[in-house]
Design a binder for these strands. Structure first.
Length: 258
DNA sequence: CCCTATGTTCCCAA
DNA sequence: CTTGGGAACATAGG
């Protein structure tokens, strides 16, 4: 669930809350995660985002890279309260603490030395279409799968890929190399529009996504195809279809997406 | 019991 | 070397 807009939302909230503050204590509650006590008593210098990764820089030169994968969440708590279920890691600051929550335990927390992962360019601001035609040359696979490839573009996953292709009026199964210049243009404009709007909405709370304060986002109210199979397409009225591409649920309008 | 789920990485085959 | 398909990771919910 956490894609670029969700991670960007957390990034901004985290930045406002912890930059300039000293990390007093860390606690690892999952043996899959390392011990990070080396960061204790060091100040947070910056919080940034790269694709779906959150980067926390500390004043000892270390950078922590957090990836939430499928079900990871970060939750801020100022009052001393109960530890939420599935908490895997805790960071305590003078004015509150951060719970790293993850039922499925896919979340990763690593040092900078394992970074940069191969990460394509950020879709915001808009990517140059020439880059996409270059990368997409000779690619026979479906455009939707291509959009999910983090080494091509950083930060897009299933929900936003479906929404972007719908706005761009491009069918998800179209071979990458079949897109013309105008379609690449439309695709990149659509990515820019959808992702910007989703950031403004603080993400899509279709199941368990919550922001740093436990609040839902609102982009689920803006979805035009994702999760809407057998409902009418908001643009042309035809029935939205669900199919499987690369093993993932894919929603599109067979009428106006070509 | 079965199937599905938001992401990534690894293995393998063409 | 590149590309693409599928399984694996761990768990909850319908």
């Amino acid at each position: 669930m956490p894609e670029l807009p969700e991670v960007e939302t957390l990034c901004r909230q985290l930045r406002k809350t912890i930059v300039g503050h000293t990390l007093l204590n860390t606690r690892t509650l999952d043996e899959k995660l390392e011990n990070f006590s080396e960061l204790e008593n060091h100040q947070v210098i910056s919080v940034t985002r790269r694709g779906k990764n959150l980067l926390l820089s500390f004043d000892n030169g270390r950078v922590l890279v957090i990836h939430l994968r499928m079900t990871g969440r970060l939750l801020w708590q100022e009052e001393n309260g109960a530890t939420p279920n599935y908490t895997r890691f805790i960071m305590t600051f003078p004015h509150g603490r951060i719970f790293f929550i993850d039922p499925r335990r896919f979340m990763t927390i690593t040092w900078e030395r394992t970074f940069p992962v191969q990460c394509g360019p950020e879709p915001l601001p808009r990517i140059d279409p020439a880059y996409m035609t270059g990368r997409g040359k000779n690619r026979k696979g479906p455009i939707k799968t291509f959009l999910l490839d983090q080494t091509v573009i950083a930060g897009i996953s299933n929900i936003y890929a479906c929404e972007i292709l719908h706005l761009a009026e491009i069918a998800p199964m179209r071979p990458v190399c079949s897109l013309d210049a105008q379609q690449w243009q439309r695709l990149l404009s659509a990515a820019d529009a959808i992702l910007n709007k989703a950031v403004k909405c603080r993400g899509t709370s279709i199941s368990d996504w919550r922001d740093f304060n436990g609040q839902k986002g609102t982009f689920q109210n803006e979805l035009r195809v994702y999760g809407r199979d057998s409902l009418p397409c908001p643009r042309c009225g035809a029935t939205v279809v669900r199919c499987s591409l690369g093993g993932r649920g894919t929603y599109f309008c067979p009428e106006c997406q070509t």
